[in-house]
């Protein structure tokens, strides 16, 4: 039987192996340098090719384009949200017909490109002018902005319905049962108990959907709407200057980043009661 008779006296922890240069760090710095150079080059391009005349001429147009993009996206998100409610309920209902119909709707709109949907509505339905005039809807389909709105709303409704359905189904069954055992009516249960919990789950996907919509909305430029992308294409077609696209990139990045930060703040705020 052997055992240690003398304990090793406590010693300080060994000094941390401090390696100044690891391959990862070298690579990381190289990448950062590359980003920095690229940024510098773009900045240099903007400074050296600065043209106050162009700025004065196209600056206001960019702002108005930004306005068009933002109103278009906001309106279609709102209409899409309204439209998504019946779809969600149909999707969760036990009625076979409703269920199938809503499933097909969601499947079709989620698996075809937004561009194809927009073209189908704008150029495709444009062919049916006499019929549309008869039902008094031509004023709507005549305008490219409305066509964009319609296709975006239909598209985002399908995505939002799926988000909402997923969120509602993520609320544990016990919540329904608890409410039922307290004798709370079904409608009240849904709006006061289930929906608030579901919306917190849905918050992040909703944010992502809005970002996707902002980016996707650039396609309306192809059907003659002067949104941010449309104004960019216009400015580029007049000046043949790549800065036109650079400015658009800055605007889009700014909107998306701002939205992401607002959303992160919102999420932190709304879920603070869940933090332990």
């Amino acid at each position: 039987m052997s055992h240690a008779l003398e304990l090793i006296p406590p010693r300080p922890a060994p000094p941390e192996a401090y390696r100044q240069v690891t391959p990862a760090r070298l690579f990381g710095f190289a990448l950062l340098a590359l980003w920095f150079l690229l940024g510098l080059a773009l900045l240099g391009m903007m400074v050296f090719n600065w043209d106050t005349e162009k700025f004065v001429k196209y600056g206001p147009r960019y702002i108005s384009g930004l306005g068009v993009t933002l109103t278009l996206v906001t309106t279609s998100i709102i209409f899409g949200a309204l439209l998504s409610l019946p779809i969600t309920f149909a999707r969760m209902s036990k009625n076979r017909v409703l269920n199938t119909l809503s499933y097909v709707y969601v499947y079709v709109f989620r698996s075809t490109p937004l561009l194809a949907q927009l073209f189908l509505i704008y150029y495709g339905l444009g062919m049916f002018r006499p019929q549309l005039e008869q039902v008094g809807l031509w004023w709507f389909f005549k305008d490219a902005w409305y066509c964009g709105l319609l296709s975006f709303a239909l598209n985002t409704a399908a995505y939002q319905a799926e988000i909402l359905r997923g969120a509602i189904q993520s609320v544990p069954r016990g919540q329904h049962e608890g409410a039922a055992s307290l004798g709370i009516p079904k409608a009240v249960t849904f709006f006061k108990i289930i929906l608030p919990q579901a919306l917190i789950v849905a918050l992040r996907p909703y944010g992502n959907e809005i970002i996707l919509m902002i980016k996707g909305s650039a396609v309306v430029a192809i059907v003659t709407v002067f949104d941010l992308m449309g104004e960019t294409r216009y400015a580029f077609s007049r000046t043949f200057d790549y800065q036109a696209y650079l400015w658009a990139a800055i605007f889009y990045l700014a909107i998306v980043e701002a939205l992401r930060h607002v959303w992160a703040w919102l999420e932190a705020r709304l879920t603070r009661h869940l933090k332990r």
Partner: peptide
């Protein structure tokens, strides 16, 4: 000039 038909075909193909 058959925009509706061909864009429907496009959607159908993606589907």
């Amino acid at each position: 000039k058959e925009a509706f038909f061909f864009y429907s075909i496009a959607c159908g193909l993606y589907l």
